[in-house]
Computed example of a mutant assay.
Amino acid sequence: MLRFDCLVLDHDDTAVRSTPTIHYPSFSATLQQLRPGQSISLQRFAELCYDPGFEPLCSRVLAFTPEEMKIQEQNWLAAVRRTRAPFWPGMVPLLARYAAAGGHICVVSHSNEDTIRQDYAAAGAPAPELVFGWEQGPGRRKPSPWPLQQIMARWQLAPDQLLMVDDLKPGWEMARACGVPFAAAGWGVLCDAARRDLQARADWYLERVEQLEDLLYSRT
């Protein structure tokens, strides 16, 4: 018997391993294009994406102009189109078993819906029933509670019938605003500051994908 009727997943670094395989290489290439000779390690990139965040990293730390921000976005979109982010080992069979047991799978992410659906299809994972991506706009993106409110309304679910899984704080903020249980995807956390923060905030801090499967079915 399922413990949660609906599994709400973040995408990047929660379902798929995208920062080391797509986002960081794309960013590094853009940095060499716009700031020749300057480099940022993967670890430092993860730290800066956590605090102050990716947009402030570009606009404040690196002082990208609006024109340079457009170049960064174009380079990133090109990288996303040519490379499929791999799902974390064990995630696709976990989703298949969960869907077969009658669970609803939804995605709330800062990636685009088209990219998310293409990643799921390419991996042979069950298609998410609802996807709320970056295209929803500022007032409807996480950490706004709007995506979770829409999911609960779709199936008339109470907050405790959902489980939100994310590797960063915006997912936790959204879940907290709705009273939805939150599990931190520790397998995708790339910096110590985020790890400490999520360990302190999350209802469950999961180090491995297998622990998520245990949580979905366990009543203890």
Score class of each variant (00 low, 15 high):
residue 95 L to Q: 01
residue 191 C to G: 08
residue 204 W to T: 07
residue 97 R to F: 01
residue 136 Q to F: 01
residue 191 C to I: 05
residue 100 A to Y: 01
residue 88 W to M: 09
residue 60 R to W: 06
residue 30 T to Q: 06
residue 194 A to S: 14
residue 129 E to M: 05
residue 159 P to A: 11
residue 156 Q to E: 12
residue 132 F to D: 08
residue 135 E to N: 12
residue 180 V to W: 00
residue 124 G to Y: 10
residue 107 V to Y: 13
residue 23 H to S: 06
residue 177 A to F: 03
residue 208 R to N: 09
residue 186 G to R: 10
residue 33 Q to S: 14
residue 219 R to T: 14
residue 34 L to E: 05
residue 204 W to A: 13
residue 92 V to M: 00
residue 139 G to R: 11
residue 220 T to N: 10
residue 99 A to C: 09
residue 93 P to M: 00
residue 205 Y to N: 10
residue 206 L to Q: 03
residue 136 Q to L: 14
residue 68 E to L: 08
residue 66 P to R: 01
residue 198 L to T: 07
residue 141 R to H: 03
residue 194 A to C: 13
residue 11 H to V: 08
residue 115 T to C: 05
residue 123 A to Y: 07
residue 165 V to Q: 03
residue 218 S to W: 06
residue 44 R to G: 03
residue 193 A to W: 04
residue 49 C to M: 14
residue 45 F to Y: 15
residue 42 L to D: 04
residue 190 L to D: 04
residue 214 D to R: 14
residue 82 R to Q: 15
residue 175 A to K: 03
residue 160 D to Q: 15
residue 161 Q to E: 15
residue 145 P to C: 11
residue 183 A to L: 06
residue 194 A to D: 07
residue 170 P to H: 12
residue 72 Q to S: 13
residue 56 P to F: 10
residue 128 P to G: 08
residue 55 E to H: 13
residue 4 F to R: 12
residue 86 P to V: 03
residue 189 V to E: 04
residue 7 L to G: 01
residue 219 R to G: 10
residue 181 P to C: 09
residue 34 L to V: 06
residue 20 P to N: 10
residue 75 N to A: 12
residue 77 L to Y: 02
residue 131 V to A: 04
residue 83 T to A: 08
residue 156 Q to I: 07
residue 174 M to L: 07
residue 165 V to P: 07
residue 149 Q to K: 12
residue 209 V to H: 01
residue 166 D to T: 05
residue 180 V to K: 04
residue 107 V to T: 06
residue 182 F to P: 12
residue 215 L to N: 08
residue 210 E to V: 00
residue 170 P to T: 14
residue 90 G to C: 02
residue 117 R to S: 04
residue 74 Q to D: 15
residue 207 E to I: 06
residue 191 C to D: 14
residue 145 P to S: 10
residue 63 A to D: 15
residue 151 I to V: 12
residue 220 T to H: 10
residue 21 T to E: 12
residue 120 Y to E: 01
residue 125 A to E: 00
residue 52 P to T: 04
residue 76 W to Y: 14
residue 31 L to F: 00
residue 173 E to W: 05
residue 48 L to S: 09
residue 57 L to D: 03
residue 29 A to L: 11
residue 41 S to P: 10
residue 23 H to K: 09
residue 94 L to F: 00
residue 180 V to T: 15
residue 58 C to S: 05
residue 136 Q to G: 06
residue 47 E to H: 09
residue 6 C to R: 12
residue 180 V to M: 04
residue 44 R to F: 02
residue 46 A to G: 05
residue 181 P to N: 06
residue 84 R to G: 08
residue 69 M to A: 13
residue 78 A to F: 01
residue 171 G to R: 01
residue 92 V to W: 00
residue 137 G to T: 06
residue 40 I to G: 02
residue 136 Q to E: 15
